[in-house]
Simulated scan of single mutants.
Amino acid sequence: MAYAFSLGDVAFLRSPEGASALDACARLNAGSIADVTAARRTAGERFASAVLETVELRRNAVSKIDSPADWLFTGDALQQASAAPVARHRAARLAGRDVHDVTCSVGADLVELARVTRRCAGSDLDEVRLAMARHNSRVAGVAPALLRADALAPSTRETVVVADPARRDSAGRRAWRPADFVPPLDELAAVYAGRDLVVKCSPGIDPAAVPWASEVELVSLDGQVREACLWSAGLAGVSRRATVLRSDGPSWTVTDADPDDVGAAEPGEWIIDPDGAVVRAGLVRHYAARHGLWQLDERIAYLTGDRPPPGVRAFRVLESGAYREKELRAALRRLDVGRLEILVRGLDVDPDALRRRLKPRGAGELSVVLTRIGRSPRAFLCRAERT
Results as ranks from 00 to 15, higher is better:
D248H: 14
L303I: 11
L110K: 04
P211C: 11
R40D: 05
R246Y: 02
L57G: 08
A264W: 08
A2F: 14
P267I: 02
L230M: 03
E341A: 08
M1N: 12
S320L: 07
G292I: 12
V162L: 12
L358T: 01
A114G: 08
P207W: 01
A143G: 00
V55A: 09
T42S: 12
A84F: 14
A281I: 14
A209T: 11
K359S: 15
D275C: 06
E227H: 08
V344M: 01
L328R: 05
G172I: 01
V344R: 00
G204L: 07
P211S: 11
E227R: 09
L218T: 14
L57R: 00
A209G: 04
R361M: 09
R313Q: 08
I342P: 09
A193V: 03
L381Y: 05
A330L: 13
Y323D: 03
G234T: 05
D109L: 05
H135C: 10
L147M: 13
L332N: 06
L343D: 06
E17Q: 15
P360Y: 00
S32K: 11
D256S: 08
V198L: 15
R378H: 01
A4I: 13
A379R: 11
L125S: 07
R46Y: 02
A87E: 10
A264I: 13
S105Y: 00
V210D: 02
D180I: 01
A84C: 12
S137R: 10
A11L: 03
R307F: 05
V262H: 07
S251D: 12
Y302F: 15
Q224T: 13
L185Q: 04
L110P: 01
V10S: 09
D261H: 09
L7G: 12
V162E: 06
A151K: 09
P360K: 01
V161I: 15
Q79W: 07
L370Y: 02
R129G: 05
L296T: 13
L332D: 02
L296F: 11
V216A: 12
A30T: 11
W270G: 13
E365Q: 15
A143L: 04
L72S: 11
G194H: 03
V36A: 14
V198P: 12
D261I: 02
L245E: 06
A379Q: 03
K200I: 11
T42C: 12
S220F: 02
G141H: 01
S6W: 00
A81T: 08
R148D: 03
L296C: 11
V262K: 03
F5D: 02
V55Y: 02
G31C: 12
R246L: 08
G172C: 04
R280Y: 03
L113F: 14
D206W: 07
F12T: 09
A34R: 15
V254W: 10
R97Q: 12
V128S: 09
A190P: 01
V198G: 13
G8K: 09
L28W: 06
S123P: 00
E298I: 15
D258C: 08
L72I: 12
F5C: 09
R316G: 02
V99F: 11
R59H: 15
W71K: 02
A121M: 13
L293R: 00
G44P: 10
W252Y: 12
Q224H: 06
A301D: 14
E327A: 15
D275T: 04
V161Q: 03
R119F: 10
